[in-house]
């Protein structure tokens, strides 16, 4: 009974922040603030150590570098989790999205593992070894992160396409008897054409992402090419939406 009262007391009077849900975004904000704090400490201790190379200063600098690395890896891990959540909340289905989610899981695990490994840094030699191993994966990880960013955008565009397809499926039976009207026939043809264009651009983006993952061309170049293809999809979707609105308003009997 006493425990029940204690629980009720804590539930009612504890600050809301303590009970707040730990979302990927709030976790990311927290980890980033931790990283900034430890990184500032690291810079101070490093300066002290370089000015006065005592054992004590070295230990302090090592300790702060370790804390900053752990916070950095956790920040990256929570950032990827945040992106993953954004992709899943789009509620879209496409092979690229599943690939993106797998990539996100892989990256999250990698960064968490790196945080665990960093916790065992004790000497300058450990730190140097950790850095050299870490550097080997920096570029690959950045590529994965870039691909995730594109897939995040793509997930929303695919979800728009799916919503438009649903609306088209509802309107189509009501429109089809009126295909003798030139405007209706042209509109249906245009929708089909734009749908094909979207499929073509999705295929193109899949190829562009594969090429990008192979590091065949630079980041900026890749981004501009992929963004162009995303823009084409967005344009086609807007055209389809306009056509559907026209059908809905002018050619559906109510």
């Amino acid at each position: 009974m006493k425990r029940l009262f204690l629980f009720l007391f804590l539930y009612l009077f504890l600050p809301k922040s303590v009970l707040a849900e730990n979302t990927p975004e709030s976790d990311y904000q927290y980890q980033l603030s931790q990283y900034r704090r430890f990184y500032a400490e690291y810079q101070i201790y490093k300066k002290d150590y370089q000015a006065n190379r005592t054992l004590d200063n070295e230990q302090k600098a090592l300790q702060s570098a370790e804390s900053a690395i752990i916070a950095r890896e956790r920040t990256r891990s929570s950032f990827v989790r945040m992106l993953r959540q954004s992709i899943t909340s789009a509620n879209a289905t496409h092979p690229l999205i599943q690939e993106g989610l797998n990539r996100a899981d892989e990256l999250t695990n990698y960064y968490l593992t790196q945080a665990d490994i960093a916790a065992s840094i004790e000497t300058q030699k450990d730190l140097a070894e950790y850095n050299s191993t870490y550097q080997l994966r920096v570029k690959t990880n950045q590529t994965s992160l870039d691909i995730l960013q594109v897939i995040n955008k793509l997930a929303y565009l695919i979800s728009f396409r799916q919503k438009l397809d649903q609306q088209f499926a509802i309107l189509k039976p009501q429109i089809e008897p009126k295909t003798n009207l030139a405007l209706v026939a042209n509109g249906l043809e245009e929708i089909k054409l734009e749908q094909d264009k979207i499929d073509q651009n999705l295929d193109l983006i899949t190829t562009q992402l594969t090429t990008y993952a192979d590091q065949s061309y630079g980041r900026e170049n890749a981004y501009s090419k992929i963004t162009y293809s995303l823009g084409q999809i967005q344009y086609s979707e807007r055209r389809i939406a306009e056509r559907l609105i026209d059908f809905d308003k002018n050619y559906v009997d109510r």
Partner: peptide, 28 residues
């Protein structure tokens, strides 16, 4: 279809979004 059209029009294609701040990869 109107709300879907508005969603499409408002959707920003700029990448990276969100942006991860630069983190030091070589703490020595």
């Amino acid at each position: 279809v109107e709300p879907i059209k508005q969603e499409i029009e408002k959707f920003s294609l700029s990448v990276p979004d969100p942006v991860l701040p630069t983190l030091d990869d070589n703490l020595s």
